[in-house]
Design a protein around this nucleic acid. Structure first.
Lengths: 205, 205, 205, 205
DNA sequence: GATGAATGAGGTTTCATTCAT
DNA sequence: CATGAATGAAACCTCATTCAT
């Protein structure tokens, strides 16, 4: 359970693939997709510029691969958390939000890249990624719908609430500092409560 | 009250300045700061490439000027709304959020540029812009503090709530379509309620 | 009548255009289209690499422009010569061949580029060029047909003879040296006779 | 008598050598020497990129080997044809031309490569190849000289005529299509007559 | 103000070739 | 013989910026 490892992609068979993907996330996160050069990525990965092209056919495909990895990790964390939660909507929402916050904090840079640089993908890759992302959002939407049906969430705007919650959680990546005042756990708790409150659901105490 | 005009910057004394600034917003919004070229901006503004440099000394300063305009407009809208609102925190929050949502909808592209491209400014310009932005955020924070003191907002996490609210409102820019299901007014109303609920404040009905 | 000037393209309004086109012919002639770099062309033209792109949008378009110029010059020389010749097919053929040989000798490199590097053009540009070239060939074909009808050319293969003649003339460019044994005029005379003989037409004496 | 086999190089002892040579001819013929990559050749040969270097030490040497094969085949066809012909110059010329045309048609691509890409050889390899080619041309020149001495060829330009003939024959490679109007045999006959006519020799009928 | 021409730096990508296995 | 991974050099092209007019 090294869920909090800083590297998003684990080493695989092909020696440099993980290093390249992680370096790409860092480079694109620091300088933006167009601001970062393939040389930057190569340097970060500790390999040569031309060798990048033995792994990924273009800069754009490299971004696509990196984002695909990030999204899969996020998705599995969130879905796993929901599976392990209770049956009532508030519990499920709470765990989903906590898992999402956990991912954002563990992979802050990847989260930023995923929100800011998607536009630079090929249309096909972008569509695929958006579909993946929508799948995660759909899990939240199902919970919201369940809670609205059960009467535990009383906001009149349940339909769009998932989007509002997810955008706040994602934005954490743009300001969180590991050495800040809030611990990882406190932050997750806080945002879980924000989410429940926003839905006008039952709050502790 | 042409608050909903599509152009962010109105014509000024200098003949092309507004055209250039608006073209810059469009170009940076469409292709990103590094993806858009000064040629793109010139074409959008209907002038020549070299003429841009008679107005702005560098691409980076052009971005800075555009963002400064956007921030000033946002700030004045929000502060004006607060001034016109009642004295109690919930009313003030409601109007502030409604004004902010209005700006985001009216200047969607500028909002996106302001959140995604700030990083490409010179350190000084970025600092100045962040300060401006913080001033707007501070207005929200004051309202939250007031409400917490009055007892109308009961969230245990009042300190950070302003940030959560503002990030959700800003994110509207990334998905709103003028021809979508929600009108401008409905959207503002919806997000005002989200904000009050998130703060665990008094909701209508 | 500086028909024998070594530069194919005369200076025009845009200062460097002619220099670039001539340098391109030289570079592509010496090293081939793919073997020559845009830097080679720039150096030959006495300008900077990037400035080439202010005149031609791509290497391929530069080749297209150069070949267009060459073909136009060849075509005008041949058609003019035919216009000035007598009415009978043998005279017309003689003058057409002499004019063609003159072009090949005057613009040896351009002739080589035109035959060897056409394949590297965009499909559209290639089609346009081939159409131009076919127009020149058609002039020869008309003469051959006229002579066959008049009975002055008696080869049983008149239809394809124009192609055979033109290929031999074009091949001169691959071996001719100005300081060789044959003068420009002698060469033209010799190939005119080859052409008439190949068509089984009336030879002097 | 598989003179018309499409592959220029027959299988040899070394398993892949012929495949590589034939793939090289195709690749260089399609994209030019500098336009084709060693990867293209490897793909065409059905082997790996690095394996090419077990057979040929460099791209340039690969071209040299391919052209050597082509020239040997051409030379042997032409010399054999002359050996089998009668003693008089016209018969010998006729057979030589027919054999040459046959080679061009059977190995169209190789002929194109041999004329267009020789320039990319090392100086030594180029010299060797030109010497080989000159040997073939010399055979034609001897026939022309013989005919001029016998009085059967009456052109005043006998010395250079061989070159004119060979260039026309070689040019067939740039336009011949197997499904065109002329059969292989008709084409050979036609060009044999062109050659005799050009030399002002005795024509049938 | 306004423009067209010019340029140096740097970007992505390809490629011939090498090497360890 | 055969391969996959690796690399330095160089290719085409773009771009922010400058300058003379």
């Amino acid at each position: 359970m090294n869920a909090r490892s800083t590297a998003l992609v684990a080493d695989t068979g092909r020696r440099n693939e993980a290093a390249i993907l992680n370096a790409a996330i860092q480079a694109f996160g620091t300088k933006g997709f167009n601001g970062a050069s393939m040389r930057d990525v190569a340097k970060g990965a500790g390999t040569s510029l031309s060798n990048l092209y033995n792994y990924f056919p273009s800069k754009s495909k490299l971004l696509a691969a990196a984002l695909r990895h990030a999204n899969l990790e996020l998705q599995s964390r969130v879905l796993d958390a929901i599976d392990l939660a209770g049956d009532d909507a508030p519990s499920r929402l709470r765990e989903a939000v906590r898992a999402h916050v956990g991912f954002v904090v563990d992979h802050q840079v990847a989260t930023l890249v995923a929100t800011n640089e998607v536009r630079y993908l090929d249309p096909e890759d972008r569509a695929a990624l958006v579909a993946d992302r929508d799948a995660t959002q759909a899990a939240f939407e199902r919970i919201v719908a369940q809670g609205a049906a059960e009467g535990s969430f009383r906001t009149p705007y349940a339909t769009d609430a998932a989007r509002a919650i997810l955008s706040t959680v994602g934005a954490i990546a743009s300001w969180y500092r590991p050495d800040g005042a809030l611990s990882r756990g406190q932050l997750a708790e806080q945002y879980a409560r924000y989410a429940l409150a926003l839905l006008e659901g039952p709050l502790a105490r």
